[in-house]
Design a protein around this nucleic acid. Sequence first.
DNA 1: GCGACAG
DNA 2: ATCTTGTCGC
Length: 224
Amino acid sequence: MSIFDAKKAIKVQRLLSRKIIEKDMFVFPPRNVAGVDLAYVGDYAIGVAVLMDFDGLHVIETAVSAHKINIPYIPTLLAFREIPAMAKAIKRLRTRPDVVLVDAHGKIHPRRFGAASHLGVILGIPTIGVAKSPLFGSEHNGGKIIDGNDILGVKLNKNIYVSVGHMVSLDTAVKIVEKMRLYRLPEPLRRAHKAAEKIKNDMKLHKITVDDIIQGRITQVTLW
DNA sequence: GCGACAG
DNA sequence: ATCTTGTCGC
């Protein structure tokens, strides 16, 4: 079997990073916003996408995916490991999200191309990076994360890092995340995380199998 | 060469 | 991310 080629992966990031559009490519305020997160079960990644309406913060629909993991976790190359499962979950949503919140960094990345940006470019959809810990850049006044003369993102309360993923401006990204924050993480992500853990637990209890998800037998997550 | 390092 | 009990605080 082929092993992961980090050198080529970095080249891919440099190439794709040029496709990033750092401005709003959707009308603000958005109609709905999705959040995607993963849970690991054995050598599989379980992806969950939760779509909510921006105004009322109500769940519109959810989608689940499962994808075998064959790439190791390497800081700055996280996208190559997690994007397949995340993309599949989003594609399974019946409604295309106006914006997607990703549980990872976007522009806050040595090549300005974190997993949130990668997912956005691959799917051609607006994405926002929302991470729980730093990865790159230095923190400045007001929480801005910079590298040289570039403003990569912002550190909000509760140590949450927000950055541009794709097709969105940093200002809009922050507005969206702030408005959907009831707790530490914005609702779409908080719920996607909770749902992924629920699925994971059900799998360990043999209530469902990875095949049920892959075959599309289990697409909805009943938890609310 | 050494240390840091999303999930 | 994942492995895990109790525990502090609103």
